[in-house]
Write a protein that binds this DNA or RNA. Structure first.
Length: 576
DNA sequence: GAGTTTGAAACT
DNA sequence: CAGTTTCAAACTC
């Protein structure tokens, strides 16, 4: 797709223009060494880590943020990705954990149209694999302010900060004022997405929206094509900086333009968007928003509110208070709900990365790695419809469920259930056979469609990744922005978004997320970095270095992003 | 598009 | 904690 820019006449200095100006060397000798390096022909075989190893160590330290920009996701992406982790290792593991070492993987839309290629060919050549060193002052500041310690903030500390911010958006304003990149706030609670949840779903970056994460996050994702960044920036800041932001839900990354229209009347009573019904399985995955009429979108009934995002234009809600202009009310209500149930906004589906089968789970037949937090209470749906939160979340029922007549295709409460498409038809009771088979067929069809390349994979594997969009959603809600797996409270977003399903539609681009990648965070894992599966505009996945551990077929050629703690309710940040 | 069903959330 | 009510999504026609 894109011409390889690497070649005999390709030099580092052309790829890293102004590199000398951007770098700070500890000594003149380092500068000279680097200068010489820059004029070396860029052999296609050279590996990024090798290059980095040539750099004086001081070059990549000094608390600077390095961006790895790769415009040609198709060709060289894997290499960059692979070496990114090496690079991290080479430059000091600490950097992967502190705020000073920020590595951004910038991917472009490899599916760009031909004309786009022509237009941007030159730019790409330059940008390609460009190492962009950027001051990390902002993050440093954040680190300083958010942490009493001068040393790098620990994961737990960051999480606490993020949580604090969630409830105290005002604090996040400061971040905005520091000049953080503008962007559209991403409610990554859901990103549990990679709540997928564990499966953060980073969706279409091509729309030019930023995915915002807490300032403590070190990962920056952007598309080279439009210079759009998925920045780990406090959502609030984005909102404040974005003049066009009308309080519109930042987290939303809908493909629907209207969702972002500036000046659009917030009134969601507008008849124009009656989202869902028009959504059909292979249709555009427009944003599906709430339709609340009596709750004022201030209760968990409201999907938007529950997801930690503001309602926006596509919503069909009435008397909506879940808007930036009612931020105080929203926050107050949220606090109230949390006081009643601290986990009210936490992901409903929790993965057990330890793979310790729950009591009653049949390791052989149920996706034991994921379960609904509280379990369902289905009486009539037999856990075969999306009324069932377990089913909706793509997880099997567990002992904690109080459902009756459970036939959850992802795993029955009693552990005897068949799983997904591999369900043995004979296993299904004759009485409900029709229904069950229908549901299973639907699931199977969607699995095939959504994950054509994984169609032959054992179902249990797929099912064990509930956070990622599941197949059966014929009306998959559009993700609020992306599916991603995120740490800490971030999961909250992915969850509701997490409702894995909203992302289902987009999940098509993401493939499944390996269990290992899913939120260790949910389990209290202190790992500083969370893996996020995302897709570039062309559906490429961005991955983070740390995720390289372990291999998975689904990862091949994909990219992963690793994001750090994300506020659970970022998008509610006030809007100036 | 309207009406029904369903089960989570909220309330008592 | 259990029962009831309210609510909005999911589903059906």
């Amino acid at each position: 797709m894109e011409p390889k820019s690497e070649g005999p006449d390709c030099y580092w200095d052309s790829l890293i223009p102004d590199a000398l100006d951007m770098l700070i060397f500890n000594s003149p000798g380092d500068a000279e060494a680097f200068k010489g390096l820059m004029h070396k022909p860029l052999a296609s075989s050279i590996r990024l880590n090798e290059f980095m190893s040539m750099l004086p160590h001081s070059t990549i330290n000094n608390g600077r943020k390095m961006h790895i920009v790769d415009s040609d996701a198709s060709g060289s992406a894997p290499e960059i990705e692979d070496h990114c982790s090496e690079l991290m290792t080479a430059t000091g593991t600490n950097q992967t954990q502190d705020n000073f070492a920020n590595v951004a993987l910038v991917t472009s839309n490899s599916n760009e149209k031909a004309n786009d290629q022509l237009v941007s060919a030159t730019h790409r050549t330059i940008r390609r694999r460009c190492l962009d060193f950027e001051m990390a002052n902002v993050q440093r500041k954040n680190s300083d302010e958010n942490s009493n310690t001068g040393s790098s903030t620990s994961e737990s500390d960051e999480r606490n900060v993020a949580n604090e911010k969630q409830l105290l958006p005002a604090k996040r304003n400061g971040d905005l004022q520091r000049g953080i990149l503008q962007g559209i706030g991403l409610h990554l609670n859901a990103l549990a997405a990679l709540k997928e949840y564990k499966g953060i779903q980073i969706e279409k970056l091509s729309s030019g929206r930023q995915l915002s994460l807490p300032s403590s996050t070190s990962l920056q994702i952007s598309t080279s094509q439009e210079h759009q960044n998925l920045s780990l920036v406090p959502v609030s800041s984005e909102r404040e900086l974005d003049p066009s932001d009308n309080g519109v839900q930042p987290a939303e990354d809908c493909s629907q333009p209207s969702a972002y229209m500036a000046g659009e009347d917030f009134n969601q009573n507008s008849p124009k968007k009656k989202r869902r019904k028009s959504e059909t399985p292979g249709e555009t995955e427009g944003c599906k928003r709430c339709n609340c009429k009596k709750s004022k979108c201030l209760k968990l009934y409201c999907e938007c509110f529950a997801a930690g995002v503001y309602c926006i234009e596509p919503c069909s809600c009435q008397d909506c208070f879940n808007k930036p202009i009612h931020e105080d009310t929203v926050l107050q209500t949220r606090k109230q709900i949390e006081s009643r149930n601290p986990l009210a906004f936490a992901p409903k589906v929790i993965r057990n990365s330890d793979s310790v089968p729950e009591i009653g789970d049949d390791p052989n037949k149920t996706p034991a790695s994921a379960r609904h937090k509280r379990g369902c209470n289905c009486k009539k749906s037999s856990c075969l419809k999306k009324y069932c939160e377990c089913y909706q979340g793509g997880v099997g029922c567990s002992i904690s469920c109080r459902c009756e007549g459970c036939k959850n295709a992802f795993g029955r409460k009693d552990g005897s259930a068949s799983v997904g498409i591999e369900t043995d038809p004979e296993e299904t009771e004759a009485t409900d056979k029709g229904v069950t088979e229908k549901a299973l067929q639907k699931t199977e069809i969607q699995n095939t469609e959504d994950h054509p390349d994984s169609a032959t994979v054992a179902t249990p594997l797929r099912l064990s990744r509930p956070l990622l969009p599941l197949p059966f959603s014929s009306k998959g809600k559009p993700p609020r922005s992306f599916v991603t797996t995120i740490s800490g409270s971030a999961l909250f977003a992915s969850q509701k978004l997490g409702k894995p399903n909203p992302l289902w539609s987009q999940a098509k681009h993401f493939q499944t997320v390996p269990d290992e990648e899913i939120p260790d965070i949910l389990q209290g894992d202190s790992s500083p970095i969370t893996c996020i599966k995302t897709s570039s505009p062309n559906g490429k996945r961005i991955s983070s270095p740390n995720c390289d551990l372990g291999s998975s077929p689904s990862r091949r050629g994909g990219r992963r992003l690793i994001l750090q703690s994300i506020p659970s309710f970022p998008s509610l940040t006030p809007h100036p």
